[in-house]
Design a protein around this nucleic acid. Structure first.
Length: 292
DNA sequence: CGCCAGGTTAGAG
DNA sequence: CTCTAACATGGC
């Protein structure tokens, strides 16, 4: 059993609501306020059960042999997944004087950015979600995972692991087209997998670099524009100042907050001046307001 | 049926 | 640099 002290301003249940957005999600299950997730760690397949007690966040290993190194990996993974090392105090202070955020931080107090620790997963998932509605995006992801991912069975239940870049790099555009990916998306995704495969792109490499460099590096990839780059910087790098400003979900959430007037991008950038350093958190809280 | 969806690219001006 | 058509298909 691994344990983490719950930071101030952390509410596991709030984070679970985000993870329960889609009925079609295969990459985890939530049963009775407990999160079940399969993860591959250096060739070893783990099944984790994550749950909160009053003061701790606990991780039970249901399957997989721990070693010291694997334990470090899993700890990092969980910390990233719930952004546990973040001190939210400055964000909540800033929100006090912001008409939009004020109510949101009150309603969803303890909500944190739910990370996608694996860069290949967040990049390709973002590409899958480009310019289609979220329901269809989840349909595509489900097909993608079931065809090219790995399945863990535990007590008669299935737990899926996202496809590895090595598998995706072998695919042809036709393989993905039959799953109803567009020609372009198929090319983008296989292209990204090949960049990982060749070593040109890796999490390790990017993690040493600064925000503008990473943004530039990501945007140099075919299929990755500003939205995708910032989405990834928010969810895989846990950068609170990433800002996918063109995001339609963000626009819809702001429209609700602004009495039915959907703001333009320059208007959003003006609003976001108050959010400096916390744009990703503002976005995540605004997205949250769409799930009520 | 028509418009919209967690955008990006390539080409034109 | 900015603007725009094309992409591709399900959801509602």
């Amino acid at each position: 059993m691994l344990e983490f002290r719950q930071p101030q301003h952390f509410d596991f249940e709030q984070c679970l609501t985000y993870l329960q957005r889609s009925e079609q999600e295969l990459l985890h299950q939530i049963i009775d306020h407990q999160l079940y997730k399969a993860v591959k760690v250096a060739g070893e397949t783990f099944l984790l059960k994550v749950f909160a007690t009053e003061k701790k966040l606990k991780v039970e290993i249901l399957q997989g042999q721990l070693t010291a190194q694997r334990e470090i990996f899993i700890c990092k993974y969980i910390k990233q997944m719930f952004d546990l090392d973040r001190d939210l105090k400055p964000f909540y202070e800033l929100a006090q004087s912001d008409p939009i955020l004020q109510r949101l931080v009150e309603s969803y107090s303890g909500y944190r950015i739910v990370g996608i620790p694996d860069l290949f997963e967040s990049l390709t998932w973002a590409i899958i979600g480009q310019q289609i509605n979220l329901t269809f995006a989840y349909t595509l992801k489900k097909r993608f995972v079931q065809h090219f991912g790995e399945k863990v069975i535990w007590q008669g239940k299935e737990f899926w692991i996202y496809p590895e870049h090595s598998a995706v790099a072998q695919l042809t555009v036709t393989d993905l087209r039959t799953l109803q990916f567009s020609q372009r998306k198929a090319e983008y995704i296989i292209g990204v997998a090949k960049l990982f495969q060749s070593g040109e792109l890796s999490q390790k490499k990017l993690h040493k670099l600064d925000f503008p460099i990473v943004e530039r590096e990501l945007m140099s990839i075919r299929g990755v524009g500003q939205w995708t780059a910032h989405y990834v910087m928010m969810r895989s790098f846990n950068w609170p100042d990433a800002f996918p400003v063109a995001d339609i979900g963000l626009h819809r959430a702001l429209e609700n907050q602004l009495a039915g007037k959907r703001p333009t991008i320059p208007e959003i950038q003006k609003l976001a001046k108050h959010w400096k350093g916390w744009e990703a958190y503002a976005t995540f809280y605004l997205w949250r307001s769409l799930y009520d």
